[in-house]
């Protein structure tokens, strides 16, 4: 009882004056019509910011098209017994220029080899691949150049995708990934043409 009376004024506050004051405050608040939207706006604002932030953070997925190169035993005589449905455009049939990029882990570093060239960093391999296809017509590159990516054991999937992306950046859409990792025993692939 002593608190409010001291805060209002130093003289003994009469009850009639206090009531008048309260009325005045009510009148002022009753000039704003409708519900009080402030808490709702606060919450909706938080939701909006949350979804905007999460959408920017996640982002849409991108897709890279990859062909699957058949393992040798399937290409050679169906050791599995059951004949797979032969696709009309098998990766091995259409190419006139067939390149192979083998990826391997050497002493903790991920290196790549273009055909039978010595192993180098992935960026250098992609640069030399770009030199190979530089003079070609884009239509020829799109139709007749085919790159097979052969990752070895221990190569991280992200490096496989990185090579894949780098090759497709050069305008080569036909990129195949071997369905079987290169084993160290079979590290030297049979020399093709």
């Amino acid at each position: 009882m002593s608190g409010p009376s001291r805060s209002e004024s130093d003289q003994p506050a009469p009850r009639s004056r206090r009531r008048l004051r309260r009325r005045g405050a009510l009148d002022r608040s009753s000039m704003h019509f409708g519900p009080n939207m402030t808490p709702m706006v606060d919450v909706v604002m938080v939701i909006l910011v949350f979804f905007m932030a999460s959408a920017a953070f996640v982002g849409p997925e991108w897709f890279l098209k990859a062909l699957i190169a058949r393992p040798p035993e399937q290409q050679a005589g169906n050791a599995g017994g059951e004949p797979p449905k032969t696709p009309p455009t098998a990766p091995a049939t259409l190419s006139t220029m067939r390149l192979t990029i083998a990826i391997e882990v050497v002493e903790g570093r991920t290196l790549a080899r273009l055909n039978d060239e010595p192993a180098r960093e992935i960026d250098q391999i992609l640069a030399s691949l770009s030199d190979v296809v530089r003079g070609l017509d884009p239509g020829v590159i799109a139709q007749q150049v085919e790159v097979l990516v052969r990752p070895g054991v221990g190569v991280a999937y992200r490096d496989v995708v990185r090579v894949h992306e780098g090759v497709q950046k050069l305008g080569i859409p036909r990129v195949g990934i071997a369905a079987e990792p290169d084993r160290p025993a079979a590290a030297s692939p049979p020399a093709s043409d």
Partner: peptide, 26 residues
């Protein structure tokens, strides 16, 4: 490691699927 993903590709290949879409993050 790639040898963990390769059996999936091999199974796709045996099932007659010639190509896949690799999902990546932008």
């Amino acid at each position: 490691p790639f040898e963990a993903v390769a059996p999936v590709l091999a199974a796709c290949s045996r099932a007659g699927i010639i190509g896949v879409r690799l999902a990546t993050e932008r």
